[in-house]
Design a binder for these strands. Structure first.
Length: 570
RNA sequence: CGGGGCGUAGCGCAGUCUGGUUAGCGCGCCUGCCUUGGGAGCAGGAGGUCGGAGGUUCGAAUCCUCUCGCCCCGACCA
């Protein structure tokens, strides 16, 4: 590709709207142009990077035995009504009517459409297993799009759907995708972790997320320092540990705590550690109030609570709602004599002589004890894991890191096949629901994540597999015939040797070319200038390290070939 | 949707509080000269209904009302 022929509108200055590095660099390097909130045009260079990811994804999906197809973006509402998601999905699903007043929507995902295909075309166990995938633009009317391609409303996604005869067979399909995903992200040259994940609204029994490690990640993941365990913090189990508390149980006493409502102020007032207090949080779960007992210094993990309750919506109650539900002003709630449904984090059940709200304004209870003073039916793991907690798998220490979710695989089971009646016949003639799995990769997000993870002050440092062009020839003097011919020759030879080569043939000053080359992140830069006239050598510079080497013009192809091979192995 | 911020040339901004000449600056863009191994210099030039509508005023980018859009913090997700 010639710079003179491709539209890459680079920017010297950082556009004001961009907050995170990948967004800034994508704008500066002319990858994308925003049309409206969360919706972007992919300009030629940005699209080229996206194609790189797509090709890797395609190759690995095909290798794993999946078949590519392409489903419609506009979908009839009936399908979504059948699966029950038309009402459940919420405002993220963009709905509209066509000219015939038919209810329609833009596909945020394609379980309904694929299940419709399956029920029409797959009838026998002989047809199974099947895994179908597509790479397509999705539309989700996000509450708040942000960070450029990281969370757009329109984005490119690879989604795959597997169909199997049984749970065990579905697990085999799942495992194949698990392997394929590991290969994909490894091939992309990304540092990532596969973690246990919450399956969220798509539903299903278990799932894994693939997280690119980057400080700007929107998710927190817990990683074991010794074993291979890793999980999304939302899902990460807090292992019950032996407290060894053998403190003598004492009588409960009621104490006055005028105006002391927050854990911190109550503890200070009573001179106790927050770990000796049990706080009572009130949530509104699908409209119903629920109390949660948690040690004073702990944080609730709402996803765990949500899953336990099996509700779609969970949020903290406000002061008014708390009073309406319990008759107690917030800050003085406690488990003793409470009237609403109560959940307790299992840590709480091991505590003795702790402090709780007295369910009476300006009073708390001290030396309260589980079993004697109150009891709770529902005990579970409801708190957020901390770095001080042990690995739930091996007991060793863990750490928390930020990650960008680039892939998510789910074992769906028969939710969709049953609600949409996608059945097959087994060898004995029984009608059985197809067992499904679904597997997503945020293709456009992968590019953003790659940049987030690979950049420096000068610009992007493309991992070799994702770079639109592996090497850029920089012609420093268009007017010098000797230099220009040499540059053109190298460019032609690289192209003929099968490389995706780039040549900066613009009539601009050297500094401009160097700055743009750095910004655009070509892995290798081959500079042809006056040094060539002096001694027939060109400079080859590696973007990642900045190391340079002078190479005779006849050696360039061999040199580049060797370097790219080395990197591929490394 | 709740909370905050911003809309002035392609990009980054000043001017708005305290109304008053032809609305500025840097970068980018066009022309010419010059220059050519890290975003050069000089000269000339194009480009604005100051987001939009209404109002107040002799006079509005500036004050008032309404409206549209974008960004940031929270609930959602590849």
């Amino acid at each position: 590709m010639r710079y003179s022929q491709i539209l890459i509108p680079t920017l010297k200055e950082v556009p004001a709207e961009a907050e995170i590095v990948s967004h800034q660099l994508m704008l500066r390097a002319g990858f994308i142009k925003q049309l409206t909130a969360g919706i972007y045009t992919y300009l030629p260079y940005g699209l080229a990077a996206i194609r790189r990811v797509e090709n890797i994804v395609r190759e690995e999906m095909n290798r794993a035995g999946a078949q590519e197809l392409l489903m419609p973006m506009v979908q009839p509402a009936d399908l979504w009504q059948e699966s029950g998601r038309y009402t459940k999905y919420g405002p993220e699903l963009l709905r509209f009517k066509d000219r015939h007043e038919r209810e329609s929507c833009l596909g945020p995902t394609h379980e309904e459409v694929i299940t419709d295909i399956a029920r029409k075309e797959i009838h026998s166990y002989r047809d199974l297993p099947v895994n179908l995938y597509q790479i397509q633009t999705k539309f989700r009317d996000e509450i708040r799009p942000r960070f450029g391609l990281m969370r757009g409303r329109e984005f490119i996604m690879k989604d795959a759907y597997s169909f199997d005869v049984s749970d065990e067979a579905a697990e085999t399909s799942y495992r194949k995708m698990y392997v394929a995903y590991n290969r994909i992200f490894t091939r992309c040259g990304l540092e990532f972790r596969c973690v246990e994940a919450d399956s969220g609204t798509i539903g299903g029994s278990f799932s894994h997320e693939f997280m690119v490690l980057a400080e700007t990640g929107e998710d927190t993941i817990a990683v074991c320092n010794d074993c291979s365990w890793a999980a999304n913090i939302e899902k990460a189990e807090v292992k019950p540990f032996e407290t060894g508390e053998n403190e003598e149980i004492r009588d409960m006493v009621k104490v006055e705590t005028p105006g002391k409502r927050k854990v911190e102020t109550v503890c200070k007032f009573l001179s106790i550690a927050p770990a000796r207090l049990v706080k009572t949080l009130v949530y509104i779960a699908d409209g119903e109030p629920v109390a949660l007992l948690l040690r004073g210094d702990r944080e609730a993990e709402e996803v765990k609570v949500k899953n336990h309750l099996g509700v779609a919506d969970l949020r903290l109650a406000d002061d008014t709602e708390i009073f309406e539900a319990t008759g107690v002003p917030s800050g003085f709630l406690g488990p003793v004599g409470i009237t609403i449904r109560v959940l307790a984090d299992r840590e709480v059940t091991r505590m003795v002589n702790f402090t709780v709200g007295a369910n009476e304004k300006n009073f708390h209870l001290q030396q309260a004890n589980f079993g004697r003073d109150f009891s709770v039916e529902e005990v579970g793991d409801f708190r957020r894991l901390t770095e001080a907690d042990p690995c739930p798998s091996c007991g060793s220490s863990i750490r928390l890191v930020e990650g960008i979710e680039v892939g998510h695989i789910f074992k769906l089971g028969t939710n969709y096949s049953e609600s949409m009646r996608a059945y097959y016949q087994d060898a004995d003639g029984n009608e059985l629901p197809l067992v499904m799995g679904c597997y997503g990769i945020g293709v456009s997000r992968v590019v953003a994540a790659a940049i987030e993870q690979n950049h420096d002050a000068s610009g992007i440092i493309f991992p070799l597999p994702l770079a639109p062009y592996q090497a850029a020839v920089v012609n420093l003097d268009l007017k010098d015939r000797e230099v220009s011919e040499a540059a053109e020759e190298i460019y032609t030879e690289l192209t003929e040797a099968g490389f995706d080569a780039f040549i900066d043939d613009r009539d601009v000053r050297p500094g401009v070319k160097f700055k743009d080359a750095d910004l655009l992140g070509f892995p290798y830069r081959i500079t042809v200038g006056k040094r060539f006239k002096e001694n027939g050598q060109v400079e080859i510079r590696r973007r990642k390290t900045g190391e340079t080497e002078d190479v005779a013009i006849g050696e360039v192809i061999a040199y580049i070939t060797r370097r790219l091979e080395d990197e591929r192995v490394a």
